[in-house]
Design a protein around this nucleic acid. Structure first.
Lengths: 205, 205
DNA sequence: GTGACTGATGTCAGTTACGGACATCACTAT
DNA sequence: ATAGTGATGTCCGTAACTGACATCAGTCAC
């Protein structure tokens, strides 16, 4: 071969290290490229923009979400599907990855631009799940509602999984967070309209 | 006065028009500035980056969220607070603003970078609401869970409010979406652990 | 085997989003 | 008057991208 293989992976690895060491904004794309023997132009051939070097290649992760939805039994309610999705997604992060995820997340958390990209990816996940729910016959806004709430639960669970001192599995944490959500909504009353209806008629505008 | 007052507002107005006419990426910051008799440098003194021209000045909007949380009765459960927040936030968008909101949103929806920024702002709202809930004694992860779910509901309701042909008020739509969320979660069974616990013990990893 | 073809890369030049440093000049307080 | 302030202009630099074109190992057709 004329070139070392795995240029993309090398770029991603070098980028994460450099970002962790000196911060996202203090590292240029040219620098990352040169650190693995490539040029800036090649960097931007592999990644649509500088931030993307930290997010590219989540196809398998997204697939885990889809697989979770597909694995749900035919008659499952939207949130039962979400529970399956969460379990499948969580299996994508075994405890061995905790340390790496922590490092990566600390880089992301320290830069607003990177957090924006992360939120965007999360929203993309939600859109995908919503589509899967719609394919199962779930209508709107239930599909989007369940999908976005599901990614919210995942996000909160993931943040907890990353937290220093946490030892539970991501799957376990996600279950707990989901249960907490049920408890919160259930605390509002038994009738479906009792909770919000309590004051809904007082000031519609 | 040496300069026309309201430079920021003029920049925002011109930017929205130009973006709507030609697309976000096809308009340069210098162009926007010159269209209102200012320079590019001044543009970036008013807005931290080009996208921000569409998002700056949402302090009142954010305040509406906070006010909603503060207006909730002392003993209210997290989601009762959320219901108050939604009502307060919705009152920030009377039907007269529907047309303008539609135009603005269509610009945002057509550009990924702008959607990223929007999600980031939404996330900031959620963080603020979560803090308000914590100040009321709500613990974690309940506070974050309720806050993020609340902004999700708001986002879905807003998207529906914007939709062509929709005539209901944002407040009414938000109530309906919130009720739909309750229905979805309530459909899982009465016990708080029945829904997720069904398969939680089968494959923790 | 030779020649066309491909795919990943390099090179170069350009545009645009910003940010730092300094000047300007109406307005204001003293 | 004099000094100070605040919004702006001017100038210049850096870094994120982008398009056009060159290069050259490997591969496939013939």
């Amino acid at each position: 071969m004329r070139w070392e293989p795995g240029a993309r992976q090398r770029l991603q690895g070098a980028a994460l290290e450099l970002f962790a060491a000196r911060g996202f904004e203090e590292v240029t794309a040219a620098e990352i490229a040169q650190s693995v023997g490539l040029t800036e132009r090649t960097f931007f051939r592999h990644f649509s923009d500088k931030r993307e070097v930290l997010f590219y290649g989540q196809d398998q992760f997204l697939q885990a979400f889809i697989d979770g939805a597909d694995a749900a039994p035919p008659g499952a309610s939207p949130f039962e599907v979400i529970a399956c999705v969460l379990r499948s997604a969580a299996s994508f992060f075994p405890d061995e990855r905790r340390a790496q995820s922590r490092m990566r997340q600390s880089v992301i958390d320290q830069n607003p631009a990177l957090r924006e990209r992360e939120l965007h990816k999360l929203a993309g996940l939600a859109t995908t799940i919503a589509a899967a729910l719609r394919a199962r016959g779930v209508g709107e806004p239930a599909a989007t509602l369940a999908a976005q709430t599901g990614t919210t639960v995942f996000g909160i669970a993931f943040a907890q999984w990353i937290r220093e001192g946490e030892t539970r599995s991501l799957s376990g944490i996600a279950s707990d967070v989901l249960r907490e959500l049920f408890d919160l909504t259930a605390a509002l009353g038994l009738g479906s309209s009792a909770g919000s209806g309590t004051r809904a008629d007082s000031a519609p505008n």
